[in-house]
Design a protein around this nucleic acid. Structure first.
Lengths: 292, 292
DNA sequence: ATTTATCATAGATGAGGTCTATATCTCCTC
DNA sequence: GAGGAGATATAGACCTCATCTATGATAAAT
């Protein structure tokens, strides 16, 4: 019907101010333009919308009916624009992150805190899962970004390399005698080893390393969280294979110590994954900047 | 913020159809135009609104939020346009008429019936009052048109002359002896006269007529409705001064007869008044056409 | 490998929105 | 009443910018 919604904006202001001149001022256009716009509306409806008089304009019956609809419409547009501005300013919105359990707690936590302080209006959604799950979440659009251990090879994903993590074997006071010693892999295997559960990336990596030297790494105990790896090692139940950066507190206070090996354990990196060729939300972009 | 609401219409269709190409078809424009419009919105918000892929487009988080507002906005506009079309077609709307009591019943009734049958969606509001009251209603915008007796002299009003009404004196069987006689004004004054209440136009007119001949018309009885004028005359309480067109039934059945006078009583016209220089509502225009 | 979708980009064009200038009308004031 | 102030309407010129055509790029389907 009307093929130019711009006219409704003009109508709205003319009705609201009761004056074509005032409407023109509000819209930063001239009065004849407003006059022309209203005329177009009236012509296309075949209805008079305003009574004109020397003091301004007043809505006709039909104009008042139109206004009751257009007013609502304009209100929604105003609210939309405010909302968009808020989203742009990060005063509003949400950020959905997927990650491995341990990375949330030991790596992301301080960033999440800072981000939340800077942008309290942004709702944070944290989804934990295994690396393949996180990748699925990303592809399904359920999260904005995923934080997992590298390497990730997937053409659909864009991966940003973040900090380096070094895994290592640690023990508690029970194995005090090993402090300062440098063990070979073979020697290490004589002690009870505590590993993270089978499907973890770190577990696979260390198993492969032993295999490449011709040994088979067989854990005495398997646990499902980094906390338990730490706890069991402290209690002397065995030697845990953990991420060094996650136990800095225990190393410092001396409740755990690192066991030196005669082979170098390859470091891994944390990767921040996003969908390639998909625009990042402002909040996701901002969070990644913060982390990197 | 956005200075072209037209863009929202394009956005709405793009989001709704999930395809810029489809949106273009719906809007009867080309796909590059849609592409350009969406880009403008995204640029001005500084936010991505759609994910593009080879099957079409999908809303981003921010886009979905925008859509939730814009959808409402567009719905109101659609409903507004439907409503305007209905008003134009007289499928909806209202018609407010002001008039003297007797004119409603004896003159307008058949037109009102016909109008209502033709346009059952139009609500009819009837406001009765004296001529000055009707004029005030018109000037206050409380009615669309007024139906009263001429003459009306008011520069702000536009008056259309409608049917002619002839007033006359009538009596019932009690005065049978006057049937066929031609009375002078003086002779008439010897009978009890029944007139409409003081502030009516017809009363003033007839009083002036007598005065111009040097007589003073003093009613025996004053009543407030045409029905009572008729009823009192039938019962033989006197000679009523009524509008001939309103008593055609009684004249036909013989319960009243007209008293011939040797002076001619000036006819009056019904006038249909509207505000000059104010656009008439479609319904008012249509009703006036019907009546004339 | 080819076809057929999709959206993006570039450049040309012309419709039409906006402007200036002026007319017209009404109300208010002196 | 004459004149001024303020409102909207009208006319015509101008120039922006929405839209077009043509083409490119990419992905999916055949």
């Amino acid at each position: 019907m009307i093929n130019n919604y711009e006219l409704y904006k003009v109508f709205y202001w003319a009705a609201k101010t009761g004056s074509l001149t005032q409407a023109a001022k509000a819209l930063y256009i001239t009065q004849p333009s407003v006059s022309h716009a209203i005329k177009q509306l009236e012509d296309s409806f075949g209805l008079a919308l305003f009574y004109r008089n020397s003091k301004g304009v007043a809505l006709t019956q039909e104009g008042a009916i139109l206004y009751s609809y257009i007013e609502q419409s304009q209100n929604f547009i105003s609210r939309a624009e405010e909302k968009m501005a808020a989203l742009k300013n990060l005063d509003s919105g949400e950020l959905r992150i997927g990650g491995s359990d341990s990375l949330f707690k030991h790596y992301l936590l301080p960033y999440l805190e800072e981000f939340h302080q800077n942008h309290p209006g942004i709702k944070l959604h944290l989804n934990h899962g295994t690396t393949p799950e996180i990748i699925s979440f990303l592809k399904e659009g359920r999260i904005d970004l995923g934080v997992v251990r590298m390497p990730i090879v997937d053409a659909q994903l864009e991966v940003r390399e973040s900090i380096q993590l070094k895994d290592c074997f640690v023990a508690g006071p029970r194995y005090e005698q090993l402090k300062g010693e440098t063990l070979s892999l073979e020697m290490l295997l004589q002690y009870p080893v505590i590993l993270f559960s089978r499907n973890s990336r770190a577990r696979m990596a260390i198993t492969e390393l032993f295999q490449s030297y011709g040994y088979k790494l067989k854990p005495e105990i398997e646990v499902g969280s980094v906390e338990l790896l730490i706890e069991f090692a402290r209690k002397g139940l065995g030697i845990s294979y953990v991420t060094k950066e996650f136990i800095s507190k225990e190393l410092e206070e001396g409740s755990l110590f690192e066991i030196q090996l005669d082979v170098k354990l390859p470091p891994t990196h944390v990767g921040i994954m996003t969908m390639r060729n998909m625009p990042l939300s402002i909040s996701a972009r901002r969070f990644i900047e913060l982390v990197q």
